[in-house]
Amino acid sequence: MAKNIYIGEIFKNEEIAQDCFLMSVALHSTFAEPQPGQFVMLRISGISEPFLARPFSIYSFQRETDFCRIDLLYQVVGKGTQILAGLIKGSQVEILGPLGNGFEISQSARNLVLIAGGMGAAPLSFLAEYLDNKVCSGSSKIYFYLGARNSETLIGMDKINNLTCTAVICTDDGSLGEKGLVTQILAQDLKKYAPDQTMIYACGPKPMLKELAKILQGTKFKCQVSLEERMACGVGACLGCAVEVKGKKGMAAYKRVCADGPVFYIDEIAWKKI
């Protein structure tokens, strides 16, 4: 018995883009070091509605002298995130984590290609930061494709600006960077990368990932995606967060996004069923 539920104290909760909040939470220093792609289950202490915790990717992690700080980026989409957005400094949240399997870090790929759509920027900018600090040497380079609906909803730039990476910004309406879907822009660029020297990392809305799977189908690119599904337990016990994977002989087979993922290799997922 080693793991615990952590009581976190909010010390920052600000709207940084339209309907998108950055929340900083102080946690006891025994909180384990998260890997990029891992997530936490978060509940607001003392409320009974909603009562299930909500999953959020880790955006930043910092060890201070006597506590740790975890940052989350979240979008207001429903009941839980609405209440979260109203929390003031000093409010308490219950945090379980870090959970799930993060991205497999490629030590050999020369091209580290990151693709984020919308809130997918949260885990991927954490990954970019990690790769920039720990992995990248002269021989490997980070290419970050970041997409959003428009300039108002684009997030993650503050972090990306501080990294040594080639950033390609795209917005659906062209209000910032290139006009078009991030997957379209990537598809145009794909020939620049040699498949056997490239690792692709992606996170974003399902239609985006599905499109990416289509683009990569039949190529030799290796690609890891971080998936989202409604969750109850977050630890693999309830089987609520199922995603269909390619089973044997066309039989349906499911994996748990929380415990078997949330990061999967893209060719493992049965995209036709999603």
Binding site: S48, L52, R230, M231, C241, A242, V243, E244, Y254
Partner: peptide, 14 residues
Amino acid sequence: RAGNPPPRIMETTG
């Protein structure tokens, strides 16, 4: 048993 296709869970009041 493979189980049912997702979504499999939904929170409701209480």
